[in-house]
Structures are given as structure tokens and as C-alpha cells.
């Protein structure tokens, strides 16, 4: 029962959505399954938060290495959770002033908004901006024109990097029919135009082939899951 029940649910959930795609009569079933899925996705947020709390509380109780930072995680987690759930600093909505809880949880000026503005945004945005430094370092250390393939990759990258800025225009603006009428046939070689052709021709072709391959892979994987051939997600016992 521990295995059979989930297998049946997996198949039912999946095939309802597949059937709903082809039979208009079954569309409502598909909608219902998708809505349940959407709500469970929100519950997964709670599960994720709960797991994080559990892990870090254990690190603190074990006095594991760096447990002080786990303390910071727990404090910032609980503080954010508290001000968000209790709507600290949120005025009731203008439409329903007599309902104390009617204001929007992320209302401008509230404690939750404050955390978004001055903690969440700078922290997450700066964390992602570090990638710029690492990609520059990787460019210096990893890219070597060892063979034709690597030259093609690097050459394309150079054209894109130049062509998607004013450098492209500045470097090849001389390919201009006003300079020499014969250039009218070669304007496609201007870096900004080359960039467009690379993207719309070679990049499209390459990514389309990858897309077709991935699509077949996902269809096969999904079918294996729905038919109960792949049961790895259920665990062992």
C-alpha cells in the first residue's frame, strides 16, 4: 500500500491532465488537478521553510562548526516570518478600514516591505552580481583556442560581445554604401548585423536541435514515471 497508493495517484494525476488536453469534456478535471497542484506548491514553500529551520536548529543544538551563523539564519527566518504573518506595520485596507487584518502583507512602509527593500533585495541582487566577477575570471582561465571548435565558440562570443554594444557599430561602421556603393552587398558583415544573423540562424538551429532532443527526453521520462516504470521518487522502503 505504501508503494501502490502513490503509484496510482501519480498515474491518475498525470493522465487526467493528458486526457484533458485532448477531450474538451475533461477540461474541468485538468483544471482541478492543476489547481490542487498549484496549492500544494505553496505548501511546499512551508515545507521548505520548516526543513531549513529544522536543519539549522539541529546545527545549533549540536554546536556544529559555524553554529553561530545558523543562529543568524534562525533569527532572520523567524523575524521575517513573524512580521510577515502578523502583518507588522500594515494599515487596514482603505476599502475595509474596520478590518484590522485587511491590509496587504507587503504594503509599502510595513516591516515586511522594509525587509524586502533593505535586506532581501541587496542581499540577493548582490549575490547574483558576483557571477559577473566569476565569469570574467573563467574567461581568463578557461577559454583556450585549442582547436576549430574552440575558435568557433570564441569567435562567436567576440562577435556577440562587440556586436551587442556600441563597439560593434564603431568598429564596422565603415561598411557603408555611402563610403563605397559596393558595400551595399556587405552590410550584413557589420558586427551588429552579424550578431542578428548568428542569433536568428545558427543559434536558432543549434538550440532547436537541443530543444527537440530535450523534449523527447522529457516525454520518455514522464511516461516512465506515469506508467510506474521509474519509481525512484518514492524512495526505497
Amino acid at each position: 500500500m505504501k508503494q501502490t497508493g502513490p503509484l496510482l495517484i501519480t498515474a491518475a494525476g498525470g493522465f487526467v491532465l493528458i486526457v484533458a488536453y485532448f477531450i474538451p469534456f475533461a477540461q474541468n478535471w485538468g483544471e482541478l488537478a492543476a489547481i490542487w497542484f498549484d496549492i500544494l506548491a505553496a505548501v511546499a514553500f512551508i515545507l521548505g521553510g520548516g526543513n531549513l529551520l529544522k536543519t539549522h536548529l539541529k546545527r545549533i543544538s549540536d554546536r556544529a562548526r559555524g553554529w553561530g551563523y545558523s543562529g543568524v539564519v534562525v533569527v532572520s527566518f523567524l523575524a521575517t516570518l513573524f512580521v510577515g504573518l502578523v502583518k507588522v506595520g500594515v494599515n487596514p485596507s482603505a476599502q475595509f478600514p474596520d478590518f484590522a487584518w485587511s491590509g496587504q502583507y507587503r504594503q509599502m512602509g510595513s516591516a515586511f516591505w522594509y525587509l524586502f527593500q533593505y535586506a532581501f533585495t541587496p542581499l540577493t541582487a548582490t549575490m547574483f552580481s558576483l557571477l559577473a566577477f566569476y565569469i570574467a575570471s573563467a574567461a581568463f582561465r578557461a577559454f583556450r583556442a585549442k582547436n576549430v571548435e574552440a575558435v568557433l565558440l570564441l569567435g562567436t562570443a567576440f562577435i556577440i560581445l562587440l556586436g551587442r554594444t556600441f563597439a560593434g557599430v564603431a568598429l564596422t561602421s565603415w561598411i557603408d554604401p555611402d563610403v563605397w556603393a559596393g558595400f551595399a552587398y556587405f552590410t550584413g558583415l557589420r558586427l551588429e548585423n552579424l550578431t542578428v544573423y548568428i542569433m536568428s540562424v545558427f543559434n536558432t538551429a543549434g538550440n532547436r536541435a537541443i530543444m527537440i532532443g530535450i523534449a523527447l527526453g522529457i516525454v520518455a521520462t514522464s511516461l516512465k514515471v506515469l506508467l510506474g516504470i521509474d519509481r525512484s521518487y518514492l524512495g526505497k522502503d
Binding site: A136, A139, F140, R141, F143, A157, F158, R164, T165, A167
Partner: peptide
């Protein structure tokens, strides 16, 4: 400027 730097870095490394 950053694009030019990245290109320079790749060229120099090569």
C-alpha cells in the same frame, strides 16, 4: 567597457 575587458582577458590568456 566590461565586454572589451572580457575580450582582452581572453585574448591575453590565449
Amino acid at each position: 567597457v566590461a565586454h572589451l575587458l572580457i575580450i582582452t582577458l581572453i585574448v591575453v590568456a590565449n
